[in-house]
Design a protein around this nucleic acid. Structure first.
Length: 528
RNA sequence: GUCCUCGUAGCUCAGCUGGAUAGAGCACUGGAUUCCUAAUCCAGAGGUCACAGGUUCGAAUCCUGUCGGGGACACCA
């Protein structure tokens, strides 16, 4: 719809202009402040310029009126134009709001260490990433999602050790001193019990079994994490193991050396990251020859860029903030364009419980599990809450409120609007296809506003994705649902003389809600 | 200490690539049901957009500074 409007205006006005929506909808559907920016150049008042420009649109079919108000040029769409757009949209639901953007994107998100189940903080990045993926797909991008498994390094050994110690304590009954930095929590004890079934309890008798427990535990955790994700309606195209990438370390290190990125000091190898935006240089190989964590990420990004996507997006936890510069520097040294990598930070989720701060710790074991929340309120509500806020600001919510399922949860409000339309069709014993070709004729102000709003989904989607402000989608759906509830209360639909027309408008509203929710990974309900 | 980020209604937050009278939900007050589901709707009240300067036709939005909250500053991952 917006595209058609822009095309039409461009035919008459040969310069760039901003097309926005007036704050007061009675002024028009679209507006441009173009006259203000022309005022200086033409040495005329914005009022007069706007007037003159308006006259160019006298014979335009898609506009009812084009008026100059206080220097703004306001466009009102015509009924026939809206009808045309609606009819076309209703005939092709699967194509509605689809974009024709081109380009390939590799999206990496979650990538939580396989040392425990996902917690509520991970859930935010997971939900955001999945929705971003769905948005991009719908807009036409060739996007693939990937999970980077940190299965090399000390934390995996620590996982095995933690299981081992938990087994000694809970199964063999020894007194065990569990150091602070070890993993703890119920799931470790459960893992120990499962391990006893798989390997026999003698596995906890000798430290030589720790490595076995590490590998087994890591695999169990990945299974659990994938289940956690699936329960929230999230799936990945690829999983990449850090460990498997290390085979290429020598090769990548040579590449860095060839790019003059590495020097030796104090017996260690350093990356000259400070030359490209980082605060200081970083160690990549320690004195004892072991590579650092950064090395893994360098190999991984070399691997990613060798796959030649047009663009890369990583969603990281906010605690990785300082990490961006060094990875980008490495990418630069590897001979790729680091500007192709965009890092989106997913900020902390602060939990309250009964008004009291709830301090989260990944390792202490007193964190709130993602699965716990999904079980209690369902993945739809979880997804909705996380997508309703910008990803880069702190989000705070009270677990107790979150558990409630009443009208304070906006998803019910939106679902209800969708279900209402379905009920109307049932009452009328009709289906959307029966009313698609009904001409809408002349629309009253309320119908027109509602219809216009329902047709905004494509531009909301486009804006939400490209601005990375996914909260615009739930925001939009809330306002559309609100308009529909108002409409429903004001007009009798089934049995009225305009039944088919009103049903057609309703069908359009329902379709936008359904497609919009679908993009958020939420299924629209037929009944409440 | 350095860097990042945030500060908008009682609460949780939108709005920020400068545009018309600063919004929503919750909570609060009052009202609507012989009629398609009242899980809804209508009305009301609620604001120094942290503060001070600057940029210009125009600033919640951009710039500078101050204050306040949070975060990051590893050879852990």
């Amino acid at each position: 719809m917006k595209k058609r409007v822009i095309e039409t205006i461009s035919k008459e006005i040969d310069r760039d202009f901003v097309l926005e929506k007036p704050k007061d909808p009675t002024l028009g559907h679209y507006a441009t402040p173009l006259a203000f920016s022309l005022a200086k150049e033409l040495k005329k008042s914005p009022m007069i310029i706007a007037q003159e420009l308006c006259e160019k649109f006298n014979d335009c079919e898609i506009f009812d009126s084009v008026e100059a108000v206080k220097g703004f040029i306001n466009f009102k769409l015509s009924d026939t134009f809206l009808d045309e757009i609606v009819t076309e949209a209703l005939k092709n639901e699967s194509e509605f709001a689809k974009g024709n953007y081109e380009g390939s994107i590799l999206l990496e998100y979650v990538s939580a260490n396989p040392t425990g189940p996902l917690h509520i903080g991970h859930a935010r990045g997971a939900v955001f990433g999945d929705a971003l993926y769905r948005f991009a797909k719908h807009l036409g991008y060739d996007i693939e999602s990937e999970y980077y498994i940190n299965d090399a390094g000390n934390q995996i050994y620590l996982l095995g050790l933690s299981i081992y110690l938990a087994g000694r304590e809970h199964i063999l009954g020894y007194a065990v001193d569990m150091p602070e930095e070890y993993y703890r929590g119920e799931y470790i004890v459960e893992l120990a019990r499962d391990a006893a079934k798989v390997f026999g309890s003698e596995v906890f008798e000798d430290e030589k079994h720790i490595e076995k427990l590490s590998n087994w535990g890591k695999d169990e955790m990945m299974k659990l994490i994938q289940q956690n994700l699936k329960d929230a309606n999230i799936e990945f195209d690829h999983f990449v193991s850090e460990k498997s990438l290390y085979e290429r370390w020598d090769e990548v290190l040579e590449k860095l050396k060839a790019g003059n990125a590495i020097y030796e000091k104090d017996g260690k190898l350093w990356l000259k990251s400070s030359e490209y935006g980082d605060e200081k240089d970083r160690v990549v190989v320690r004195e004892d020859g072991r590579a650092t964590y950064l090395a893994g990420d360098i190999i991984y990004h070399d691997d990613k860029f060798s796959r030649a996507f047009d663009y890369y997006i990583n969603i990281w936890g906010a605690d990785h903030h300082g990490y961006i510069a060094r990875v980008k520097a490495a990418i630069h040294y590897l001979g790729y364009y680091e500007s192709k990598l965009e890092v989106i930070l997913s900020q902390m989720v602060s939990l309250l419980k009964g008004g009291e701060p709830y301090k989260m710790s990944k390792r202490a074991g007193n964190f709130i599990l993602m699965s716990e929340v999904v079980d209690e309120i369902g993945s739809d509500a979880l997804r909705f809450v996380f997508l309703s806020k910008k990803s880069d600001t702190h989000l705070e919510f009270d677990v107790d409120i979150f558990k409630e399922q009443d009208s304070s949860n906006p998803i019910f409000y939106i679902q209800y609007a969708h279900a209402r339309v379905n009920q109307l069709f049932q009452k009328a014993q009709k289906e959307p296809k029966d009313v698609i070709d009904t001409p809408l004729g002349e629309l009253n102000e309320d119908s027109k506003n509602l219809l216009f709003s329902a047709l905004l989904l494509p531009e909301v989607l486009d804006d939400a994705f490209h601005s990375r402000g996914l909260q615009k989608m739930p925001e939009y759906l809330k306002s559309l649902a609100s308009l529909y509830h108002q409409f429903y209360n004001k007009y009798k639909i089934v049995g009225s003389e305009n039944e088919d027309k009103l049903l057609k408008i309703s069908a359009m509203v329902a379709m936008s809600i359904r497609v919009g929710l679908g993009l958020m990974g939420i299924e629209a309900k037929e009944r409440m």
